[in-house]
Design a protein around this nucleic acid. Structure first.
Lengths: 233, 233
DNA sequence: GTGACAAATAAGTCTGACTTTTTCTTCTCG
DNA sequence: CGAGAAGAAAAAGTCAGACTTATTTGTCAC
């Protein structure tokens, strides 16, 4: 799914990135490039490349005579897929999953509305196929197969919205859905109501009914929020 | 606002990044690190660091024996603030502004609803102050002053939502709002109706009325969409 | 205390040599 | 003539060392 350890600098990142995002170095901590290079047993050039990447993610800031200082969490590029992965792999994974699910609940209904307007015939067909796949795997502990179709379904919706910002959230949604299946909630078969909603959503998009598509997606995302106990009292 | 040219590699990025995002090198184009280094008159080490950053943004991919190949637009990290700036500075700025405004229209209503639940007293005060500032600068060609308060207003809403993914979109919103003021639409005083909506929204948040806050924000964002002729027929 | 000057420090830069991976070419053998 | 193996070539990757530069800190005179 991701791209682990492309080259030496990549391996350094795979180690240092998660450490920083996990809070191993509190904000304001100062690292020295040379020490890091020694610690990871790589040359300074490799270490510098890694630091540059962390810097471009706003995880650290490199200043002369000072060193490489860790930035506060509030400045991180939390939309960077790599940062998202690192954080999801860390200790406060549940908090990440909540943030991202709230994000989904804002984006997906609007995306579905747009999809109902702009989806091509081919995309409608894919959508129906995914929904059927979900139905087919909705009973009898076929969670893996269900997940595949669920992820594909939401990807198609986001793509069909015609908005590239929405489309690029496909990976995030995939991460959230698969995270939910593998680690957290969902030990048994998926909620039949959710399955039905997906089938109906495919219908609404196919029929070009934006209002219904948006409403159905809201119901789907409300379900996702409830699973994580994110709820209005 | 941004961080221009931090070091030599930064200056290379400021030149190469916009070129790539502007489509100067079509997807699949192959660049050579050495040639780039020569062209920009920097050492290979500096050039390599720049390439690493572009790689982390998924703008290019570096492979042995092949070179640095430009990735298709669909793979770029379009949420990276730097990439957003580069693209907004380019030729298809209008298209970017539309994408981002649609994104706003999805995010901000939900954020406002959450803000109505979670805003602190201090945030409520800030919000009211911003709204008053908008009113004060709403007539007599005081667009600059209006913009400052408008941006601050939306930042507070996003922050007060308590969701970090929303909060981190503050810069994007600022970019969109200031772009609209400086370059595109808005040559005269802002729409009085929009000003009123902001005042009412501050009220709704202060009174802890999520439904009204969300609805008012939808009306605000509908206005923003209409300005850019993004409309459902 | 304030301002200027000097020293220390760590990032930044450059260069050159070497390694490794991947691709292309070519040669051989069935 | 085609397939597969051996070899060559190309470009990124890695490393080590010397040097530069900006920034901070400390010191000294005023």
């Amino acid at each position: 799914m991701s791209t682990p350890g492309r080259g030496l600098h990549g391996r350094v990142l795979d180690s240092l990135g998660p450490a920083i995002t996990a809070g191993a170095y509190p904000p304001g901590s100062v690292l020295r490039t040379d020490e890091l290079a020694q610690h990871f047993e790589v040359s300074r050039s490799v270490m510098r490349e890694a630091v540059r990447v962390l810097e471009s993610m706003h995880l650290v800031e490199s200043r002369r005579r000072v060193g490489v200082t860790v930035r506060p969490e509030s400045e991180w590029n939390v939309y960077d897929p790599q940062v998202i992965r690192w954080r999801l792999a860390g200790a406060d994974r549940p908090r990440q999953l909540r943030s991202l699910t709230v994000l989904r609940s804002a984006i997906e209904p609007v995306a579905a509305g747009l999809a109902a307007r702009h989806a091509t015939a081919e995309q409608c067909a894919e959508l129906t196929e995914c929904a059927l796949g979900m139905v087919a795997h909705s009973r009898g502990h076929q969670l893996a197969g269900y997940l595949v179709h669920d992820v594909a379904f939401h990807r198609v919706i986001l793509d069909a919205s015609g908005n590239e910002m929405f489309a690029r959230l496909g990976d995030v949604v995939a991460e959230v859905l698969s995270g939910r299946t593998h680690h957290d909630v969902m030990f048994e078969d998926p909620d039949p109501a959710a399955v039905t909603l997906h089938v109906q959503l495919a219908e609404a998009v196919r029929e070009g009914d934006p209002v219904r598509a948006e409403q159905l997606t809201r119901e789907i995302t409300v379900g996702a929020l409830q699973e994580l106990d994110i709820l209005a009292p």
